[in-house]
Nucleic acid binder design. Structure first.
Ligand SMILES: [Mn+2]
Ligand SMILES: [Mn+2]
Ligand SMILES: [Zn+2]
Ligand SMILES: [Zn+2]
Lengths: 157, 157
DNA sequence: CCTCCTGTTGCAAATGATATTCAGTTAGCG
DNA sequence: CGCTAACTGAATATCATTTGCAACAGGAGG
């Protein structure tokens, strides 16, 4: 399993920074990995404390998420209003997101051509890209249908 | 000037929603228009209160920015950490942003092909896009140079 | 114009997410 | 082991944004 590999690399990372290898930090990684999808920190905090309060406190979760971001295992993938949605990117290939503003459904996609065009744009502006985020907000097919139905009822009322 | 036209349309918008035409709301529009670039709300609040405290209070600025967003004259264009950068889009054509993480410089760009590819992706997922945001974070040319210089010094130390 | 009703404003206080402080606890080098 | 620096949890602070509320001002109708 590549989760172990990631943990090893994270260990290296911590050592290099003069940080310590602690139970809490690795417990959090396990929790995030088993959570399995996009998550918000508060959501994660609640989930962890429901499962096993001894893993880590809210403060440690926030601190560790930060470390994992620096390390590169976690990305802020969606910023909607004052919510921040993260993703565990262990091994997962890079991708972007479609977000349904009605029901919150998240659809992932990857378009090579878009990536290439971005590089082109950066070159044109002598800009060195480090990372990027493309968010497309709209309605998923289910919500679009639901809206049509409702509109129909209103029209006949 | 198209600012007047925008104000007229905003007036229509307000009436339709059962809202009132007030000095404060239009004063804020003028301030945002004359501010001229991307802005953060707190920044705008400070700027307005430096210029003319009688225009509007912090609360009214927040409330009005919200209205202008609904109306479509303002967009949240950049979300970085816990900062939100807005833009007055009156008449300005749609575009995306390159953001220098070192100095904060913002470069605007527009790539038709990227827009088209996005539409394609949405179709493929039966998703109805409402709006989108593409943020590319990295280093502007000036900051890239500066880094190289520093790296050079460190290397010889 | 005046009146009245409703939406609006400013301020203070509430939120909610995230950061920080600090005192007690551990990791891990020697 | 023993020590010291890093870590942790709980409480507290911060920062942006929102909300409650009492005073106030649009604007429709007279
Ligand atoms: Mn994803
Ligand atoms: Mn812009
Ligand atoms: Zn949906
Ligand atoms: Zn720069």
């Amino acid at each position: 399993m590549q989760l172990e590999e990631l943990k090893n690399k994270f260990e290296q990372f911590l050592k290099q920074k003069g940080h310590k290898i602690t139970r809490g930090r690795f417990g959090i990684i396990d929790k995030i990995a088993s959570y399995g999808t996009h998550f918000e920190i508060e959501e994660l905090v609640r989930w962890i404390s429901n499962q096993d309060k001894s893993v880590a406190s809210r403060s440690t979760v926030y601190r560790t998420v930060r470390l994992l971001q620096e390390f590169g295992a976690i990305r802020e993938v969606i910023k909607l209003g004052n919510r921040t949605i993260y993703e565990f990117v262990a091994g997962k290939p890079h991708h972007e997101h479609l977000i349904c503003v009605e029901c919150g459904t998240i659809i992932e996609f990857y378009k090579e051509e878009i990536e290439e065009l971005q590089d082109k744009v950066c070159e044109e502006h002598d800009f060195t890209p480090v990372n990027h985020r493309l968010e497309i907000f709209g309605l998923c097919s289910a919500c679009k249908e639901r809206r049509h139905e409702n509109r129909g009822l209103e029209a006949t009322a």
